[in-house]
Design a binder for these strands. Sequence first.
DNA 1: GCGCAATGCATTGGATTCTTATGTATCTTT
DNA 2: AAAGATACATAAGAATCCAATGCATTGCGC
Lengths: 113, 113
Amino acid sequence: MIFSSELIKGTLKTIVLKLLADNSKMYGYEITQRVKELTSERIQLTEGALYPTLHAMEDEGLVTTEIEYIGKRVRKYYKLSTTGKARSKERISEFADFVETMKLLLDIQPKTA
Amino acid sequence: MIFSSELIKGTLKTIVLKLLADNSKMYGYEITQRVKELTSERIQLTEGALYPTLHAMEDEGLVTTEIEYIGKRVRKYYKLSTTGKARSKERISEFADFVETMKLLLDIQPKTA
DNA sequence: GCGCAATGCATTGGATTCTTATGTATCTTT
DNA sequence: AAAGATACATAAGAATCCAATGCATTGCGC
């Protein structure tokens, strides 16, 4: 089951920030694959959404980039700046709070694992 | 702290469906106030977002409406149709699954209450 | 009784965000 | 040699939400 894209809206930046916080550097395609893998294919980032977001994050100063060549193929790595690391923590904790609020609102019971 | 509207995106319909599932009938303004109250002001639905959504839900057959007059003032009640009730359950459970997936992805620890 | 805040409906313009489609190029597998 | 995976990118359009605005009624304070 793939989540309706409606739900995922607004979480893309948070997801990217988290992955970059855990991995010193990643490139765009790698991010899409990692998310697919980590979520058992339930969240699929499209490149049309991801690249503009990464560029915006660069403009905002949240990430820096470096180009590598794998053979003749270009690979553009992104890594978090200091600001980006702080932003990452902020967004994740904001999401956590949001989830708690939504759970109360929707009467969602904690999973008995 | 008010959640960044970015996060709330995509959850509006789910919230409305849940409130209508719990209350046999509600009107627009009441929904905005109830959400504000239930979330300690952290989620504030704007009317510009809510009314178009309610109208869309009516077109989709998820809700039916009835007009009441309080004095001379119009009040438009919304109630869930059978389809709407089913949709409500679907959306809430989808959100619950989404949250679990995101928690894994973001390494969010369950709150020790 | 007058003004302001609250109640209650609604629409519009704009911003933001994502999707779909397309484009280019290289590398790997069959 | 073709097909699929890797890897970048943009552009047009849809969807969704926000801020602003408008109208009308009701209640409260002074």
